[in-house]
Design a protein around this nucleic acid. Structure first.
Lengths: 140, 140
DNA sequence: TGACATTTGCGAATAATTCGCATTTACATG
DNA sequence: CATGTAAATGCGAATTATTCGCAAATGTCA
């Protein structure tokens, strides 16, 4: 799953649209996060990015995640008892379930949950900016 | 909204059922959390409890929340960017919405969301142990 | 009433994240 | 394409939330 030129210019443009500079560090971090299938925390993301580009520091990974989250390019998954994890904002929306025995994080495909939340929020006079849902579950 | 005798023996019994001792500190903390309408974090809970019973320490508030959460008496609300908040396990279930402008935490009545999650989890072969959903939204 | 495992307070330790600041750099403008 | 300037970076120190270690206290059960 290699980021092709099209997607490349995509994120570059999205950064610019958000008024952000395209730095080599941001490019490296985004590349790694895009190519990664799981949902890394900052430490993991830092290690992987480091292998590709040793100019990045942990602080920059933190700052980049924060900045990209605000720009809507990245989603932060807040965990109950572990450091936050991150994923590139998915085009096909989904939610997350943690297998509390194995620790695995499983994606729940579909938008049903998000749609229901939107409807319910609308009833209260709100529109959703973001939501994080982590379901802790055990195999039946 | 004062905890009456019935509810009192309730929580005492629930502690015992969970193999936990009924200590004065736990009693004070539970009393305060039960009487509180909002969803305090540990620091707030500690301050309020302290006014009633100056034998409690912060460490005990943390330990008590953890122990009560495991016993299913308390629910932990994991926030995006702020210390966790707590509430007594509600009998009428609900979810939570944070007004990102005011910081207010609003309860969403009803069980629709939880029910949908249960259904979806079941489809994946899981049963939910707990879930935390925090919706960040803005007034329309 | 004792015996003993549990719980507590205290302060120190840890883990995750943020900050301060001097230096570097992307990029708009001429 | 040179360059001024705000934005971004690395580094390590600081902060914040939470957990831990341990000795003393105490709830509970026999």
């Amino acid at each position: 799953m290699v980021t092709d030129l099209e997607n490349d210019s995509d994120y570059r443009q999205m950064l610019r649209d958000a008024g952000l500079r395209v730095t080599p560090q941001r490019a490296s971090i985004i590349t790694i996060l895009s190519e990664t299938d799981d949902h890394p925390n900052v430490e993991e993301l830092y290690e992987k990015t480091r292998a590709l580009d040793d100019t990045v520091s942990v602080a920059t990974v933190y700052r980049t995640m924060s900045v990209l989250e605000n720009a809507g390019l990245v989603r932060k998954l807040v965990m109950d008892d572990a450091p936050a994890r991150y994923e590139m904002m998915p085009h096909t929306d989904h939610d997350h379930l943690v297998d509390i025995d194995s620790g695995d994080l499983i994606e729940i495909p579909g938008t049903e949950i998000a749609e229901l939340m939107s409807r319910v929020a609308a009833e209260l006079g709100y529109h959703i900016v973001s939501h994080h849902t982590v379901i802790r579950a055990r195999k039946t």
